[in-house]
Design a binder for these strands. Structure first.
Lengths: 188, 188
DNA sequence: TTACAAAACTAACGATTGTTAGTTACAATA
DNA sequence: TATTGTAACTAACAATCGTTAGTTTTGTAA
């Protein structure tokens, strides 16, 4: 599948954003990386903000949709949690750079884009939380502080994009199996 | 204990860096937050870079020293790991803003400061890794991929600064106990 | 070959950046 | 009271920022 010029720009920008953050990357940096001048970028995009919002909102939708779908299907809390972890890993592996922006640069979105992002983020978190609470209720999950469990798993998944480069030869399915085991059963 | 003017600046800057990142915060932003003009900052600091390096290197040393100390004391791998988690929580609770900069803005350090930081970070990680490997060898820890375990625990601890605000009424000692339990024993 | 659209270019804009120079206000000390 | 050091100020600098206007090159279809 052939990429539009705009998509190319977004991909290149994402890589730069990941290295130095949105604010530290100039339009001239992005242009240089594409071997064109900064002004030429504006033939394809409205501005710097559009690059960020394309990047962040697109992958945020993926997360929201997949959790929504898991929550609506049936299954025990643990089955759902496992599925959630696996889906998160899949998205991370395929959109590592975009996730960096989602994690670190979402606050530089403006206007409606920012509101939309926060809404999706909250919904995602709420879905996650409800699965954990369901697990505690059915006693599949130890009755610990649900917020501690939520935070612990979520922060591991959110930071996976950083670690995925060093993943090296570890195959995706092995990673899934190991991470599910560590996050759910612990290490002892 | 009375703070020097420089320390006040660093503290105020840290709070702003946490919100928007180092690059998106201007000297004028920092000055405004202190009710002075930007030029006045330079009576106390050499420049923006010095604010960042004071912030990051200071807390990085804390981490390095504490892991070093734990590694040199005796104890089983699990005892050490538990201690490591607890110390990490203590430092996070007391230096949340600085840790934000350490996590997100370290790449904007320059020259020797950057090299020093990377050295400390690598050493910290290596100490952590050796404890986990020791645990696997003595069979206190399940023989999973050590890198997966390392990553999982470390990313939870590193993101704790974000979550600590929402910690709310959860007392520090409760947090320690819960988090140690979740990270080591899992949730089932 | 001509016509048209896509995508590059040059040049420049106003705003903001980190920082410097030189000066002034104020409090403590001699 | 005179002196001195601290910490503020105003004004401005060169560089860089995102962006716009207008023009030229390039590739494709008629």
């Amino acid at each position: 599948m052939k990429l539009t010029r705009k998509e190319e720009i977004v991909i290149v920008a994402a890589k730069l954003f990941k290295e130095k953050g949105y604010s530290a990357v100039s339009m001239r940096d992005i242009a240089q990386q594409m071997d064109i001048k900064a002004a030429s970028l504006y033939n394809h995009i409205k501005g710097k903000q559009e690059i960020l919002s394309s990047l962040v909102l697109h992958v945020a939708e993926k997360f929201t949709n997949s959790t929504q779908s898991i929550t609506s299907q049936d299954g025990t809390a643990l089955q759902r949690l496992k599925k959630l972890i696996e889906v998160h890993i899949d998205i991370t592996v395929h959109h590592a750079d975009a996730i960096a922006a989602l994690n670190n640069d979402w606050m530089h979105l403006d206007g409606q884009d920012l509101l939309d992002f926060i809404a999706m983020r909250d919904q995602y978190e709420e879905n996650f939380r409800s699965i954990i609470k369901q697990g505690i209720q059915t006693q599949q999950i130890k009755a610990k502080e649900p917020e501690v469990i939520l935070f612990s798993i979520l922060s591991t998944l959110r930071t996976l994009y950083l670690w995925n480069e060093k993943r090296g030869k570890l195959e995706v399915n092995v990673l899934k199996k190991e991470l599910v085991s560590v996050l759910i059963s612990g290490i002892v």
